[in-house]
Amino acid sequence: MNTEHGGRYHLLRVAHEQFGCEPARLGAEQRQQAERIVERQLRIEAAVLASAEARGVVIPDGQVEQALARIAERYADAAALQQALAASDLDAALLRLLLARELKVEAILERVCAALPPLGDTELSLYYFNHPEQFARPEARTARHILITVNPDFAENTRDAARARLEAIGKRLRSKPERFAEQALKHSECPTALNGGQLGQVVPGTLYAELETCLFALREGQLSGVVESPLGFHLLRCEAIVPARRIALEDALPRLRERLEQRRRKAFQRQWLARLLDSNACVENAHG
């Protein structure tokens, strides 16, 4: 295995992750961008594997097979994967070696920051109180809807007929609002019909503007008139109003700890890599 093999593998991965295609389908500018990324990745990989922290790091075969399985999921079948590998002058055996190498780099980077002490509650609390906007949750609505689509190919779904059908449903529901879920199941042409038209907890920016404006103007328990969106005609019911709130510190702590510790690990790894690459560059210059 050599740098050329690694370059072909990284190019295959970068093409998929950055551009969603095989290397052969990259445009000239995309190819140049991908090759710059690959060149840097290879330089980092070589430096990490040659570092003192790499000693004793071994990747189990099972971990390599899991990584291979994740790659295989991108392709329709095993033949499609083999074809893609062959197009990059790779095969399954070589891919396993390259994956083991990549996993070893990741394991070394994890080892580098293993000695970092865990974040204390005081640090997390300070972040929480200094960034209140990150823990604010806007006012929301729990809602249901009934949709009748417009399709001139069907008499019952012409524009006038669709609206008339929904107005008739709305008239029935104004006298018996508790039947909304039943009517949604029976008449709605949205997949949510199977769940009684339930939209769940809706926050601003979730629905079409026409629907959102209407929904957030409703009182709790109120039924809307007929509202049109690009999907068709709707009836909306506001089941509950969830006031704007701030996530409590004790509820925020678990995810906040995970997020900040991951951010700190990444920053520490970047600093370590920068020092390592600078050191290698100095050595190369001295020998040059």
Rank of each mutant, 00 (worst) to 15 (best):
L223I: 15
H187M: 03
K186C: 01
C214L: 10
L199A: 05
E189K: 07
R219Y: 02
E258C: 03
G197C: 13
L211C: 07
E239Y: 07
P254T: 04
R246S: 14
F180L: 04
L260C: 01
L211T: 06
V226A: 13
L253T: 06
L207Y: 06
G232P: 08
L218P: 01
T213K: 11
H187G: 06
V226D: 11
G221R: 05
S229N: 05
A252L: 01
P243W: 12
E228T: 12
G200K: 15
L236V: 05
T206D: 01
R275M: 04
G200A: 14
Y208I: 01
P243Y: 14
R245M: 05
L211G: 14
K266N: 08
Y208R: 15
D251M: 00
P191Q: 13
A252Y: 09
E228M: 06
Q183E: 11
D251R: 03
P243T: 11
A209E: 15
L273D: 01
V226F: 14
F180C: 02
P230I: 13
P243H: 08
A217M: 04
R265Y: 02
A184R: 13
R265F: 00
A252S: 05
L231V: 05
E182R: 08
R246V: 07
L185T: 07
G232M: 15
L256S: 01
L231M: 13
L273M: 05
V242G: 12
E212N: 01
T213W: 00
C238P: 03
Q198H: 14
Q262S: 10
G200T: 10
A248N: 14
R259F: 03
G232F: 08
H187D: 08
G205M: 09
V202L: 09
L223P: 13
V242I: 15
A217C: 02
R259M: 04
R245Q: 14
